[in-house]
Amino acid sequence: MAKPILEVNDLRVSFKMYAGEVQAVRGVSFTLNKGEVLAIVGESGCGKSVTAQTIMRLNPTPPSIIKEGSSILFDGKHEITKLTNSQMEHVRGEEMGMIFQDPMTSLNPTMTIGAQISEGIRKHQKVKKVEALLRASDLLALVGISNPHERLHQYPHELSGGMRQRVMIAIALACNPKLLIADEPTTALDVTIQAQIIDLLRDIQKKTETSIIIITHDLGVVAEIAQRVLVMYAGRVVEQGYLDEIFYNPQHPYTWGLLRSVPRLDSDTKSALVSIPGTPPDLFAPPKGCAFAARCPYAMKVCTEIDPGHFRVSDTHSSACWLLHEDAPNVERPIEAGGRTHG
């Protein structure tokens, strides 16, 4: 069996603030295999973007701190948490690429598209400017931009939102990375362009066998592209498994809530969308038990006192919920197989 391209173990990341320490990521563990697409989902503030940026070592230190005992092993040889900034510069861009949320704020408005794509190629592959620009033109063609030779000389403001996002993908792919992290790559785009970007990522993944982590709160995007899913809440993974396991056999009340909040077009019944009541906990002082207990209609006394840990549903599926304990009462979950809601 092939070794995973990425192994994250007990990752804990905090931010030192004047008011105290924000525990943004609290013991996240997962693996990513070669050529696999993993989605990390959850509402805003759950720690998914901090997790992704920590893998790339993009969080400024200070105020961010990677806690002792955290491990991010990349390609079986790079312990990301131990690399110096100089060593990390060789990994970032060359072996890992990242697509950011908002291309308009990520692209440099004073540089041409060609200069921004070729910059990483020249740095990591030590080629001349002309050769780097030819490679940049090929990348623009790969991501579906017409007239790539002309686009090389344009500036970000001259392109549409969808084209700017394609440029961001081209920059991330410039050095043929083994790992591509896409942080909410479709958030600022309209539905039609979103579908095109997802199709593009799927096509690139098949052609290059690049492993992809996609960060999103959109379960529709997850269903289109992911093979495995991590559900995060309050800095922790509360459920993980293959796509079908999460969508057709969800086990955590938070996952049920996420699925119930998504509109469905394949159901004859007209059921209202259900929001999750309450707000996430303050990560200055996280609760000692299950972080979701205060918002969970099935919470028991043990939920507020003891962290449940992960219960194994199958060899590939686990959930951090006391309802899976053998002594827990049986509850009728409000969501059927396939994500259909009751009522």
Score class of each variant (00 low, 15 high):
residue 223 A to Y: 09
residue 8 V to M: 02
residue 81 T to C: 14
residue 197 I to W: 02
residue 323 L to E: 02
residue 44 S to K: 05
residue 140 L to N: 03
residue 331 V to E: 07
residue 29 S to G: 00
residue 177 P to H: 04
residue 144 G to Q: 03
residue 68 E to M: 12
residue 301 K to T: 14
residue 297 P to M: 10
residue 26 R to K: 10
residue 95 E to K: 08
residue 71 S to G: 09
residue 125 Q to G: 07
residue 243 L to W: 01
residue 274 V to L: 11
residue 307 D to L: 07
residue 87 Q to I: 08
residue 93 G to Q: 03
residue 74 F to Q: 02
residue 22 V to P: 14
residue 1 M to I: 01
residue 55 I to Y: 08
residue 246 I to S: 00
residue 224 E to S: 10
residue 283 L to V: 13
residue 237 V to G: 05
residue 329 P to W: 13
residue 66 I to G: 03
residue 180 L to R: 02
residue 321 C to W: 00
residue 135 R to W: 11
residue 294 A to M: 12
residue 167 V to F: 13
residue 117 I to E: 03
residue 161 G to P: 06
residue 156 P to T: 06
residue 45 G to W: 04
residue 268 D to L: 13
residue 105 T to R: 09
residue 1 M to V: 07
residue 15 F to H: 03
residue 86 S to M: 15
residue 264 R to E: 10
residue 331 V to T: 07
residue 160 S to M: 05
residue 89 E to S: 15
residue 265 L to W: 12
residue 107 L to F: 02
residue 321 C to K: 04
residue 156 P to V: 03
residue 246 I to T: 00
residue 278 G to A: 07
residue 160 S to L: 10
residue 206 K to I: 12
residue 286 P to N: 14
residue 340 R to A: 13
residue 168 M to N: 05
residue 133 L to A: 04
residue 175 C to H: 03
residue 104 M to A: 02
residue 84 T to S: 15
residue 125 Q to N: 09
residue 37 V to Q: 05
residue 315 D to V: 12
residue 296 C to I: 11
residue 120 G to W: 00
residue 117 I to K: 05
residue 285 A to C: 14
residue 273 L to R: 13
residue 305 E to P: 05
residue 335 I to N: 04
residue 44 S to E: 07
residue 155 Y to K: 03
residue 26 R to N: 12
residue 225 I to A: 07
residue 112 T to S: 03
residue 290 C to K: 04
residue 335 I to C: 01
residue 287 P to S: 07
residue 256 W to T: 07
residue 127 V to M: 03
residue 343 G to E: 14
residue 13 V to A: 08
residue 38 L to P: 01
residue 137 S to E: 12
residue 114 G to H: 04
residue 202 R to H: 15
residue 323 L to P: 03
residue 114 G to V: 06
residue 49 S to P: 08
residue 98 M to E: 11
residue 16 K to F: 07
residue 276 I to T: 06
